[in-house]
Amino acid sequence: MVGTSTGPASRTRPSPAPPVRLLGSGPRRWRWLVLGLALATTGALAGVTAVERLDQRQGVLVAEGDLPAGHVVGAGDLRVVRMTVADGVSVIGEQELEQVIGRPLTVPVADGSVLSGTALGPDAAYPAAEEAVVGASLQPGRFPASLQPGSAVSVVVFTEEAGGEGSQDGAEAYPARVQSVEPSATDGSVIVELAVAALDAARISAAAATESVAVVQVPPRGGA
């Protein structure tokens, strides 16, 4: 490598550029900073989304005012409250409002209580098929004091066709369900509405007109 030609020809220009033993590390820091900020933002957004997902409250329908059994539900009878519903609780969500309106209640629903799916009867099926509703005025002593709307009862009709003294066992019983109970104004009697089998309706109605009817409360789904 000792240059024999030390003349003016020793002009040097290294043709291949030698490597530079340095790195510029300036903008890379900014890049990392931007990346870090982006990651932090993504994490924050993910956290917010997760918290929103955890809020499992939903709108459910509750009764606005006391609704008796048999009442056909209208839009004014309901309001929406937001609550968290545990599994296994029957509720009607606000999105099902359209399907609820126009359907009858099978049981009375008190003001502010949650409307459950089982409280609604079949659509436009009140009274149900093969059922009829009759009214009767009951004297005190002919109905139990525990009579409530929805109670399963037996309607006892006294038959007095024999008219004689020996025919006291002329009584017939019909299964029925109480729709409403309203105390009368004066004498302690009550006016009840009873859902009965359609075939029995005429018989019971006729007996009720002559006040020869009593109501016996029986266990639900039981008979008398």
């Binding site: 550029a17 030698p18 490597p19 530079v20 510029g24 300036g26 890379r28």
Partner: peptide, 26 residues
Amino acid sequence: AFLRGEKGLRRPERRPLFRAAASLSH
């Protein structure tokens, strides 16, 4: 700026500064 660490260069050996420095050192 590259030497001060403020800026990255893809091929620093092609910059005039490093070409001159290489020529001088050679």
